[in-house]
Design a protein around this nucleic acid. Sequence first.
DNA 1: CGGCATCCCTGGGAGC
DNA 2: TGCTCCCAGGGATGCC
Length: 279
Amino acid sequence: MPELPEVETIKRALIPVLQNCQVNSAFVGRENLRWPLPKDLAKRLTSRYFTHLTRRGKYILMFMDSDEVLLLHLGMSGSVRIHQQKPNLGKHDHFMLEMLAAKGDGKLSYVVLNDPRRFGWIDLFAESAIDSHKLLAKMGPEPLGNKFSVMHLQEALNGRSGPIKNALLNQALVAGIGNIYASEILFLAGISPRRKAENIAGRRAERLTAAIVKTLRAAIEDGGTSLRDHVQPGGEIGYFVQRLAVYGRAGKPCSKCSSTIKIIIQSGRSSFYCSRCQR
DNA sequence: CGGCATCCCTGGGAGC
DNA sequence: TGCTCCCAGGGATGCC
């Protein structure tokens, strides 16, 4: 489910509940999600404080006063909910933090991770190991960070004979883009998802760079895209779903030229596009 | 090295 | 209503 804008939305919602707050208790519902959960996870979290939260691609990093980092990836179906009262946990609620409010008034709130398909994962590791972390080390630049530029993108696409759609999904080239936003970005840039990545240069590369930034920013503003699973941690839906120009709109008219939106399968994943507006 | 198929898992919707 | 089939927002892995 969650791509960069959804993960950013979730991170922002978690900050008031976690940052500078102490873990009163932690609940771990199962031994593993995609991979085994860290050993003694609940024990290592209990009584600790979160110092700050960041996002990297589709990961949320929660830094702790123990100089460890709690890493969360939501996979396809993961979601996070915040409750003010102790919730009854459902079948797919695998992890919960019971947090003490920063104010010191003893008020508790609850952060619950739900993940039916269990493609998500959690890790807890020393902050000093962050740069060598297996899952983070290979990741490309943040598209909303200041290291991201036309020049970088051009370089990343250089020598790639596969379609641009696949390249956008490759987290080693640019971090955080998933299947929804890849289609939306290419529509905004006027580039066909089938175009060879290495054939994107000049004006097209400029348009693509701008489209990546613009699409992701707009989606964050709207709280992400709610299709099936995604809700913001407070339960609100993400309104970017109303702005989707091509994703999920096969057979419907293109908003720019009225020709019919097409769907094709690339490396086993759907791509939506307008063959008239995108070349 | 790049590109592609396969696999992990459950639930929702379409079609019969 | 119930069954089967297909599809889903991710990404590691292994093969060519």
